[in-house]
Amino acid sequence: MSKKPLLSLENVSMNFGGLKAVDNLSFTINEKEIIGLIGPNGAGKTTVFNCVTQFYKQYTGNISYVNRDDETVDLKNYKVTQIASLGIARTFQNIELIPDLSILDNVLIGAFNQYQTNVIAHIFRTPKMRQQEKEIKQKAENILERLNILHLKDFYVAGQPYGILKKVELARALITNPRLIILDEPAAGLNDRETDELEALVYQIRDDFDTTVLLIEHDMGLVMNICDRVVAINFGKFLAYDTPLNIQKNHHVQEAYLGKDE
């Protein structure tokens, strides 16, 4: 396995009006790793994601990322809308899909950056635009097929079961050609069978789509099964960064979850 670093946080802190949601956090993740980010409720996990994807810009510290040309860049220099084209894609804790668009169209929204046509071309449906639309649709259908939901592509998102919606969000993230995919609680709301399927899926994402995976998850079983390494935080503070096995033995982590033995 390669050990090239991909994303690295150095002393990242984020304040919400005096409340330190993230407190001096540092860790580095390498290419093709599957990393879990765990912590009790309110530990600041989603805030970390929002800092990485530049939804929050007021953080201090440094978040660096190795782009497609192997250059290390400071993510703060990019707008939130430029993050996707850098190769960082994410899903959301609460499903963020467009209910009155079909599943296929929802996935196509992820391909936004790959269209090289403008509104004028869209109005007149130029041959170039049609060709591109066809290619990208094909790509979207391929992804949907790999996630086993191709047969649902023409259905509206509204009214679909939770497990399907999670997959659509995943497909939308995958079509952006990500190098790093950030999953916010991918197993929340899934039943046991779907969670098992998700496990296989995460491996598939890493291997077939050649990506690194960073995920927040409460399902410890899932985290321990699939993650190469796990970052544990509490109240925004770094607790441990180790293999799942060692994390389970780490007494800081145990304290955070179970409380201190007095």
Binding site: A84, E96, L97, G110, F112, E133, R172
Partner: peptide, 21 residues
Amino acid sequence: SPTGRSLMAISRSQHAALAMG
């Protein structure tokens, strides 16, 4: 077209729209 889908994205889910660029 992508434009139409983007218009719908900004009204229905700003976060997703931003994250997709």
